[in-house]
């Protein structure tokens, strides 16, 4: 039980960190895309990013099994025959699966801020990167925190993708949701009940925190 809890927290933490690094700039690019060409491109990219919201995890898991496998492009980069059944493989899967939970709120946040602060910073001759980091990121801290909390909570509860590519290795790919499934399946209901209760409580706390944050004025 202990290793599974630790593993699940590590997976959720690392996934959230990676999504902060990649998802926030992506959300910014999508929110800024206005011109005819980049607007159309952003529409397609936005739809692709939102896809994991509606795709069954089995579909994503199946594609990942091929993508991470010996015939896919990623395994050679890591110098292994396959990334399935490994923690890095789970991180890649979780990042794809939780991507919309980071990008959607942050993109909406940037869009709601409008362009006045950004343009003012540029007029005062701030470099774009500087303006982004010192002006836009602090202004969007509310939506970014929302995205981070959502991504973390969503990864905590992830089941289908992990089941499809994990292979149930204790301490490496056996996350809490998988352990609960195994316990239920083998009639080990008291263990399943404790874990399920803990996960439900933690998830409730996250959602409660989110709703509280949303009521606070950020601008």
């Amino acid at each position: 039980m202990g290793p599974a809890i630790l593993l699940t927290l590590e997976l959720a933490g690392l996934t959230t960190a990676i999504l902060l690094l990649l998802g926030v700039p992506l959300a910014w690019a999508l929110a800024r895309a206005r011109a005819r060409w980049s607007g159309a491109l952003a529409g397609v990219a936005g739809a692709l990013i939102a896809l994991p919201l509606v795709l069954p995890p089995t579909v994503l898991g199946f594609y990942l099994l091929i993508l991470l496998g010996p015939r896919g492009p990623l395994a050679p980069l890591f110098g292994v025959t396959t990334l399935a059944f490994s923690f890095p493989g789970l991180v890649i899967g979780s990042c794809l699966y939780s991507l919309p939970f980071m990008v959607q709120p942050v993109r909406a946040g940037f869009a709601a801020l409008g362009s006045s602060a950004w343009e003012a910073a540029l007029t005062l001759r701030a470099a774009p990167l500087d303006a982004f980091v010192t002006v836009m990121l602090p202004l969007a801290r509310g939506p970014i925190l929302t995205g981070a909390l959502l991504s973390f909570a969503h990864t905590l509860g992830e089941f289908g993708v992990v089941m499809m590519i994990g292979g149930d290795i204790p301490g490496k790919t056996e996350t809490l949701s998988i352990l609960i499934f195994d316990d239920v399946e083998t009639l080990n209901w008291s263990a399943a009940g404790h874990l399920a209760g803990a996960l439900a409580l933690v998830s409730f706390l996250f959602i409660w925190l989110l709703l509280r944050l949303e009521r606070r004025p950020w601008a």
Partner: peptide, 21 residues
């Protein structure tokens, strides 16, 4: 080195895709 399939069908899938040798 053991990876566990939820059923014998998923086990076959792991092998057929080459993820498990």
């Amino acid at each position: 080195k053991i990876v566990t399939g939820k059923s014998i069908a998923q086990t076959y899938q792991f092998i057929a895709t080459g993820n498990a040798a």
